[in-house]
Simulated assay, not measured.
Amino acid sequence: MATTIHDGSQPPPSPYLTCVSPDLLIRNALIASYQSEPPGTGLFTLFSSLPVELRVKVWQHAISVPRIVGMEKVPCWEHESLNSGRSYFADRWHYRIRNPPPLLSTCVESRREALKAYQTHDNLNAPKSNPPWIRYDYDILHLKARRWDEQGQQVAHMWSEYDVRGWNYPGGNVSDGHYSPKRECFKKVEAMAINRELFSGTTNDYVEVLVRRTFPNLKLLIILIDDEIDIETAWEIKNHSFSPYEIPEANPGFVRRWAFTAASTGPFTLVSSQNSWYRYDVEYKMHRYFTREKVRIKSFVPPYVVVMGCALPKAMEIPSCGRLPV
């Protein structure tokens, strides 16, 4: 579906301006710490000499910083599954957090304070040594798909697009997708960031149905784009029609973009003016999808959608990451 083009150099206002914005969650997304964040260089060697009341306040302040939480999937070996075509079933995988809060392992005192704030979810048979620590109402869950390598080959035990959007693949497997108890941890998530590549070309996958069923408490959906390039210029987009950029996955140019998706990280940023039309295009489409589902399911409360930029970690270069068409 093509976006309706308006006159003027700037896109129309976001269709979500008339919706109630989850301001706290959006703020958290903009200030959240992330896994590849440069470590602090300052040292305070007298911390242990402070009164316990002051130390507790410091721990509590540190815990109050929201986090961008990465989730990984690990194979459930009793099923002997690989992440490839016919053998893909959701029940054959567990999900766990890649970056548990560091305060859980700093010292006994910090762990005690962290336990008061963080909720754990016993992900059924997931390894107990690394539970999926996340504050569902505060942190930002960052999901990415990593089915291909840079040569377009499938990678075993990595993220697949079916983890998130293909909830009924393969057909007839009633234990798959949102029916899978292995995905119970998704039900409490209130803020989620997901790379645009995962939702590209998903008209037939009905993103709105997927979100309603798999993430029923989602209040904020952040769609991440590569904002470090001018997409319209790089891909020679005409009349703000982004079909050449959102090409089918079978096209090598799109497959190469997974290299960026797999490595992308925080901080999440407001989209720059160079990609304002693409931001509007994505928000417009997502608004249509969720409005359609709201009409169909009266009780459905759609999440607020905002498009943000993400980037590669500092000093990382990926020569072939799909930033230019093939």
Rank of each mutant, 00 (worst) to 15 (best):
S180L: 07
P181I: 11
R183Q: 11
R183I: 06
E184K: 11
E184C: 03
K187C: 08
K188W: 13
A193W: 05
I194N: 07
R196N: 08
L198A: 09
S200T: 12
S200N: 11
S200P: 08
V207L: 10
V207T: 14
V207F: 11
V211L: 12
N217I: 06
L220W: 02
L224D: 00
D227V: 00
E228P: 00
I229T: 04
W235K: 02
W235C: 02
K238F: 05
H240Q: 12
F242K: 01
S243K: 07
P244I: 01
Y245M: 07
Y245Q: 06
E246N: 12
E249H: 11
E249D: 14
E249R: 15
G253P: 02
F254A: 07
F254W: 14
F254Q: 06
F254R: 11
V255H: 00
R256W: 03
W258F: 15
T261Y: 01
A263T: 12
A263R: 15
A263I: 08
S264F: 01
T265I: 07
G266R: 07
F268P: 00
V271D: 01
S272K: 14
S272H: 08
S273W: 09
S273V: 10
S273F: 08
Q274K: 10
N275L: 10
N275C: 09
S276I: 07
S276Y: 06
Y280D: 09
Y280K: 10
Y284H: 14
K285M: 09
R288K: 09
T291V: 08
V295C: 12
K298M: 05
S299K: 11
F300P: 04
F300L: 04
V301F: 03
P302L: 01
P302F: 02
M308V: 02
M308C: 04
M308N: 04
A311V: 04
A311P: 05
P313W: 06
M316H: 07
E317W: 06
